[in-house]
Design a protein around this nucleic acid. Structure first.
Length: 493
RNA sequence: GAGCCGCUAGCUCAGACGGUAGAGCAUCGCCCUUUUAAGGCGAGGGCCCUGGGUUCGAGUCCCAGGCGGCUCACCA
């Protein structure tokens, strides 16, 4: 007890006093017939006179987030979900015993109240409490009322405190939930089946990324946390589900930054008989609908930039974008030396022995991506950087693929799936060769996936949307940690 | 991984040139039955991130480390 702060000791003392008063400081159920938000919506606009006439009774619960005492009376503000409602505690109405309980209240405690709605002298919509039920004692103090909790580290480590102290944080995560619910509703409406595929995979596939490894004791084998659900979802297309989607976590054993968390939420969906161009329209519809349904507009602001989500979005081929943004001659597309010179002139750093595709991709990422502020669909990616995408009929060096960029960031990646098992085998073999050459992110051979394709996969288009980044965009957050409830951090000590 | 910045009371922050560690809020005591950053009077509260070093003396200067943020590199 000696290592407790004075405030913690005071609260434990009050805990004991409550028990002496016959109050259980950690109670059981409270029959809240009302919610603060409901009361505010239904009656919050009524005048003093109307409230006096109607004599409305109510019963709700919440956490004390503000407390102003006056000797024989007090005002407390209760937080119930996203809403705050003031209650008035008066000795006359609560009695000697009841008011002793009030004197034991602290910021952070949970209480239930029943009473009558009224308006104070200062016109504040308030509950005059007739009965108070103590629900739970907080043994630690809340952050300061004015500045709240601003220390970023504490906000991430103790998200529960962040959520109490910062209503805007509470709102961001409520919005995140609505976005995911909106995505789910949209896809289900479009005839998709929601499925769950393994998070622990014997062969990690579906993305070029380093996996986490874990071990299953009973099976005596290593398993990988998935880097993508892609190969399993395609197995389901083979199995005869024509439209499937999954919203779930992916895990990548890579660096952490403002746009990377080791575990992140991914939406992937697959449509049989469709090609990538069908998905462009579907994506336009989805994003615009989310804007309208959740924010009532298709114009949003992200980090000071106005972004117009209403379709149609600009479409630009990967190669055209590289040429036009930089005013380059089309020779760079086929001439490695010309591409190298262009990179040097554009101050794009490229490894000395990089191949043409890598040079062009560096140029794309450095010079084109940051310019794609308004939603832009980039199409026709080179085959070398699209190992799972279908080859373009009109140009075998390209794929039937697009990526959606908004605010300079990749939001979606979609392509017509490669369903030729022999071609897929060759590409896996190429990946395996790269892996053997030291590329830890290259794909593994997945014989079972090939076997599935050999059973015949209908023409299919698939797409992935990074949910965290989508939420960042819609909630105007610069860091992924501000849209993930418990971002990954090193241990405290 | 590299660079820059930060770490002082429960919270938000001050602490020039090295000389007994401060404020506001919160807490505790007294007063106060319509306040809303309530108010008045009084009081308590510190491993100054950790470990070394320099010095008569270190929150402050030096070295090493920890944790976090931002920027850069890989990735979505």
């Amino acid at each position: 007890m000696d290592d407790l702060t004075d405030q913690q000791q005071q609260r434990i003392k009050k805990l004991d006093t409550l028990r002496e008063l016959g109050v259980q400081p950690y109670g059981t159920r409270f029959d809240a017939t009302d919610r603060a938000g409901q009361l505010i919506r239904l009656h919050g606009e009524k005048s003093k006179e109307v409230l006096e006439r109607e004599q409305l009774r109510c019963r709700f619960a919440g956490r004390i987030v503000a407390l102003r005492r006056f000797g024989k009376a007090a005002f407390a503000v209760l937080q119930d979900g996203a809403d705050r409602l003031q209650v008035y505690l008066k000795k006359d109405l609560l009695g000697e015993q009841g008011y002793r309980v009030c004197e034991m209240l602290d910021l952070g405690d949970w209480i239930g109240v029943s009473g009558q709605l009224f308006r104070t002298k200062t016109d504040e919509f308030t509950v005059e409490v007739r009965e108070l039920t103590f629900l739970s004692k907080a043994l630690r103090p809340l952050p300061e009322k004015w500045h709240g909790l601003t220390d970023v580290e504490t906000r991430y480590r103790q998200r529960y405190v962040d959520l109490i102290a910062n209503p805007s944080v509470h709102e961001i995560f409520a919005t995140r939930s609505r976005i995911i619910a909106g995505v789910r509703a949209f896809l289900i409406e479009k005839g998709f089946l929601e499925v769950e595929t393994p998070m622990m995979q014997p062969i990690p596939g579906g993305a070029t990324a380093r996996p986490f490894v874990t071990h299953h004791n009973a099976l005596g084998m290593d398993l990988y946390l998935r880097v993508a659900p892609e190969l399993y979802l395609k197995r389901l297309i083979v199995g005869g589900f024509p439209r499937v989607f999954e919203i779930n976590r992916n895990f990548r054993n890579e660096g952490i930054s403002t746009i990377h968390n080791p575990e992140f939420t991914m939406l992937e969906f697959y449509v049989a008989y469709a090609d990538y161009t069908d998905l462009i329209g579907l994506t336009e519809e989805l994003i615009a609908r989310l804007g309208k349904e959740i924010f009532g507009t298709t114009t949003i602001e992200y980090q000071g930039q106005q972004i117009h989500l209403a379709p149609p979005w600009r479409r630009w081929s990967y190669r055209q974008a590289i040429l036009e943004v930089n005013g380059l001659d089309s020779s760079v597309l086929s001439d490695r030396t010309a591409a190298m010179k262009a990179a040097a002139r554009l101050k794009v750093e490229v490894e000395k022995n990089a191949d043409l595709v890598t040079i062009l991709n560096e140029i794309f990422e450095e010079t084109v991506e940051p310019k794609l502020v308004q939603p832009t669909v980039i199409t026709d990616y080179p085959i070398e950087i699209s190992p799972l995408a279908r080859r373009k009929d009109s140009d075998p060096s390209l794929t039937d693929r697009f990526e959606l960029y908004i605010a300079g960031r990749e939001i979606a990646n979609a392509f017509s799936e490669l369903n030729d098992p022999l071609d897929q085998r060759k590409r896996f073999e190429a990946q395996v060769a790269q892996r053997e050459a030291g590329d830890e992110e290259a794909h593994y051979m997945d014989e079972d996936f090939l076997r599935a394709l050999e059973h015949g996969m209908p023409p299919t288009a698939g797409e992935g949307i990074g949910i965290d980044r989508l939420v960042m965009l819609f909630t105007n957050q610069a860091s992924i940690r501000d849209v993930i409830l418990f971002p990954q951090l090193r241990p405290e000590k």
